[in-house]
Computed example of a mutant assay.
Amino acid sequence: MQQVIELERVAKRYDGSGRPALGPLTLDVAKGESLAVTGPSGSGKSTLLNLVAGLDKPTEGAVTVAGRRIDRLSEHALAKFRREHIGMAFQFFNLLDDLTVTDNIQLPARLTGASRRDAAARAGQLMEMLGIQKHARAYPGRLSGGERQRVAVARALVNRPALLLADEPTGALDTASGQDVRDLLLELNRAGQTIVLVTHDLALARECATRTIHLVDGHVALDTPVQAVR
């Protein structure tokens, strides 16, 4: 089975000598999996996400994403790789309030060199797929939390990434909006999108993941496939 993420004996130390914030850790995520990463604060969840996203580099070990050894890339090459292969959705959306919904979604495509026409067409396709086309000309500040998270997910998907990373995607949402986002992520994974979710939301992990790992002190304490029919 094709692996989208391969971590081989990866460790991250921030003080250069003490106990690692993460690892050593070996972990594979296959194409089409939806992996939920859970654990208490300080367990290494954010460190793991940052290493997979290429936002940080390991102290030791190898990080391979979409067939590319990203821990060896320069900062410039990493930025280009992220734009082309990794989509990211965050707890607080990180949308640009002075851009419309359409322009927010198009932005990563434009940064990779897509024409305005092609970027607009892809944005329109995603807005229709995610049920937000009526907000195309609206500004993010006028949307609900659930709607803003859908815009953020659309932006993350605009370049058809091999991997979608979601960092506490329901953390800033009320119950109804959180369920809306859970339904969206489940639908995306059923369509074949590989997803890694970092979350404290056990309902999100239970409903959206095909597999859950639980981190404790930087190590995988549990690695559990989801048995229920999704």
Rank of each mutant, 00 (worst) to 15 (best):
V198E: 00
G192E: 10
K134C: 00
Y139K: 10
L107C: 09
L164W: 09
E128G: 13
V220K: 09
H200T: 08
G145E: 03
R116M: 09
P108S: 06
M129N: 08
R160T: 12
V198G: 00
L111E: 06
L157S: 08
T224H: 09
L165M: 06
L157R: 02
G113A: 06
D201E: 10
V158W: 02
R155C: 03
D183S: 13
S144N: 04
V151K: 05
D180R: 13
L157W: 02
A109S: 14
N104A: 06
G178S: 07
L204N: 01
G145L: 12
L163T: 02
A156N: 08
A176D: 10
P169D: 02
G145C: 13
G171E: 04
V151N: 07
L111W: 05
Q106F: 00
E128T: 11
Q125S: 14
E128W: 09
M127I: 09
H135W: 06
L188C: 04
L222E: 14
L107M: 15
A172S: 15
Q106T: 07
G124Y: 11
V181H: 02
N189Y: 08
A121H: 14
Q149F: 05
G131E: 08
D103V: 04
R182F: 01
A221H: 11
R160L: 07
A172L: 10
E147Q: 15
A162R: 05
C208E: 00
H200C: 11
